[in-house]
Structure formats: C-alpha cells, structure tokens
Design a protein around this nucleic acid. Structure first.
Lengths: 224, 224
DNA sequence: CAGTGTGAAGCGCTTCACAGCT
DNA sequence: AGCTGTGAAGCGCTTCACACTG
C-alpha cells in the first residue's frame, strides 16, 4: 500500500505494458512529424526531398528520414517523397484523419482564447463544451458556447465521446479538474496550469506552461 | 550565509552572471529549475530534500541534485536545502530577480489573453505594449492597453528597453514580425505561431505550439 | 543515519556515412 | 547522378552508486 508507483514523467515514450511488439516512437519524433505535416501542406511541388523538409523544419535531413522510418517507407530513391501520399499516410498514422472531441475547463481569458483558436478546428479538434465552476459565468454565453457548470462534466464527456480535456484553470484547481476528467474517461489532457499533474500511467498529459518558456528566455538573455 | 561555492579553476560549468559562454547548462535543466522554483515557493518546511523536490516535480532525485550542481552547491548533507536561500540563489542565477519588459504582437484572442495572463506579472514579466497591424484594432483599448500600429514597434522597444517579444499573430505574418522584433533589438522571442522561425544564432526563440501538443495527444490516444 | 555532490555507467536521440535503388 | 533507408558512431542527458559530510 505504501508502494508508491514510480511515475516517471520523462518516460513519454509510447509504451504499452505487455505489448512488447508495439513500436516505440520517440516523443521528439512525434513532434517533428506534426511539423512535417504542416510543411507538406504548404509544399508547392508534387514531390519533396528529405533535405527540403529538413530545411523548412530547421532540422537535419537524416533526422527527417529516420523519423519517417518509424512509420514505414514512403520515399522513392532519387526522387523523394510524394507530397500528397506522405501527407495522407502520416495523418492516418498519427490518428489525425478524423475529428476528435475536446472540452475546455476554465472560462477565463485563456480558456476563452482557446475555445475558438482557429488552429484547433483546422486540424480536427472540435471543442464541444466549456466548463467553469464560477456561478457568475455558468449559463452565460462565451464565444458561441454556453458555459456549463463543472459538476456536469462527466455527463457531457460521456454523451459527446470526448477523449481530450484542456485544463485552463488556476493552479490550485488543476489537479481536481484532472482527476474529474480522468474519472469521466478522458485519456488525454492538455494542461495549461503551472503544476505537475499526478495521473495514472495510461493517461497522457501534455503541459503548456507559458511562463516557464519566458523564464528560460530570461536566463538566455542574462547569460548569452 | 556564505556557503562554500565551487571556486576551483577547472569548474567551467558553474556560471556566474555575465559569463558569456553559451550552452553550459542543458536546456531540460533550465526548464526543471523553473519548476523547482515554483515548488520552493509553496514549500512549508524551512528545508527541503532533493527527494522531496523530485517527488513534487515528478523527476528523479539525482536529477534534482545534478541540476542544482550546474549552478553551485546549495545543500547541507543530512539536512537538505534551505528553502529560502535556494530560492533566492536560483532566482538570481536564472536572471529572474528583476523585472523584464515584454511586448505582445497580435491583438487577437490569443494576444488578448496573454496581455494580462497573471502568471507573467507574478514572475516579473511586464507587458509594456500591444501591437497589431489591423487598422480596425489600432487605437482601441484592449484590457487596459492601447493597441499600437505595428510600424511603431521599433520606437517602443527602444524607449522601454524591451528585451522579449511575444508573437501571437497568424502564421503568415510571424516571420516578418520576428524580423522586425530582432531588427529593433529584441534578443528573446516567445513564438505562438505554428512555424519554424529563422533567426540569427544570438537570438533565442521558444516555441509554444498549441496544436502540436494536441496532435501528439491524438497519437497517444490512437496507439496506446 | 539522512542526505548531498559527483564520477561513471546507462541509455536514447541525433548525426554520419554509405549501400542500394531509380 | 540524386536520394532514400539504415547500421553504427557520436553525443548529451539521465540514472546509478557511493564517498563523504554534518
């Protein structure tokens, strides 16, 4: 009982206990693949080389080829990659070939901006509901959404098949919100609160800490 | 009290402020140090062990000690770290012991949320101006700020000694904004546009790509 | 003892280099 | 020739293990 599970947040590799066959794609690779997708969408030629992708993404060409090789062989030696085909393949392999329902928790300034952030909709993420526990906000409309009381979270998540929750609440409330989201069946969390959430291994958390980034900038300004 | 400090000449890693050597401290370490700072601020005991910090940050205890050792020796064997003293030391070494002026470029939903994001002010980042090139927005007030025309960027940056620029404009405009910021003397950029900015080596860029994070969540949901 | 600081081992991502295909 | 796919080398971050300290 005192046996604390060694939660290692650095282990962001895709892992599946008891499924050793499952290919493990490094996390940096996943992030780069998403960047490559955007580059492919803006490509002007029908084919593109790893060097050209690398140039646009600001990485090494061998890196591009290695990244792609985690998912299969897409290129033609001497020619490069078929833009349209590679784009379709990557999108499917990343699970981005369909819409996903997300909820936003927290109707403050940040949550309000996220609700209709055009990038989400463009890439298949559909915000289906916005929650807040502030009575002054509940029931009011916010950018086309009615703000819903936080205690109705579970119902909505089940009814709308929501798989991702976005946490845009103050730090003090973030862990409770995470617990509630997980309890309602959400398996992925995008967390904007400046705190390290404790979650079960099977739940994936991505942290976007706005201030953290500024602080490292501060260091570089000081030192460089 | 003046603790023993690493003073041996071979210790090139401990960097004093104003030592213009780059890439001494690993980037992951810098990010974790900022997290440790937050943990220290919420600590309840006067001293704290590396194991306790590690627990709260979700990392290995040896990692914590190694991270801190980049900046000096702060701990007392058998006791741990003096919370207040460590906090003050880290803040200074990270260049976070003073205010920094930042500008926000882009007065859309995201820029609007960033302008008075409480975390910025709390940690010493002061938004001094907001820019946009949309004539419909210029001159209007936004959360206490007057939106300024983009072509007046350089003046403001010089007058207010701005060292950091936050880019919250659409992708198509981001590179131009970055060029203008750099031209005006900004050395640090926090970029929210989904594009890889091309900047000189001496400029530091941090990217916060909201959609990228959601997309990797999508992959994990698909695969795990 | 409890806990730090650190050399060394471990491990994983990145880059190189080149065989092989078109 | 032009370019991919990949084994192997390179490199840097993480973790271990332990001497040492109050």
């Amino acid at each position: 009982m005192a046996k604390r599970r060694a939660v290692n947040p650095k282990d962001r590799r895709t892992r599946r206990p008891n499924m050793p066959q499952s290919k493990q794609v490094p996390d940096p690779t996943l992030l780069r693949i998403c960047r490559y997708l955007r580059i492919l969408e803006r490509a002007e030629e029908p084919t593109i080389s790893s060097a050209a992708i690398a140039e646009a993404a600001g990485v090494n060409a061998a890196q591009v080829r290695k990244d792609l090789s985690f998912f299969g062989e897409f290129g033609q030696p001497g020619v490069g990659y078929d833009v349209e085909q590679l784009h379709a393949s990557l999108k499917q392999l990343m699970g981005l070939d369909r819409e996903r329902e997300v909820v936003v928790v927290g109707a403050g300034a940040l949550g309000s901006a996220l609700i209709n952030y055009p990038g989400f909709r463009e890439r298949g993420f559909r915000v289906v509901a916005v929650f807040d526990n502030n009575p002054a906000k509940v029931g009011h409309r916010l950018r086309g959404y009615e703000v819903i009381a936080f205690d109705r979270l579970a119902d909505t998540i089940a009814d709308e098949h929501v798989s991702i929750g976005i946490i845009a609440v103050p730090r003090a409330a973030a862990q409770d919100v995470a617990d509630a989201l997980i309890g309602a069946g959400v398996m992925g969390i995008l967390n904007f609160a400046p705190i390290t959430l404790k979650v079960p291994d099977e739940v994936t958390v991505r942290n976007v800490d706005l201030t953290l980034q500024l602080e490292t900038l501060s260091y570089h300004l000081e030192v460089d």
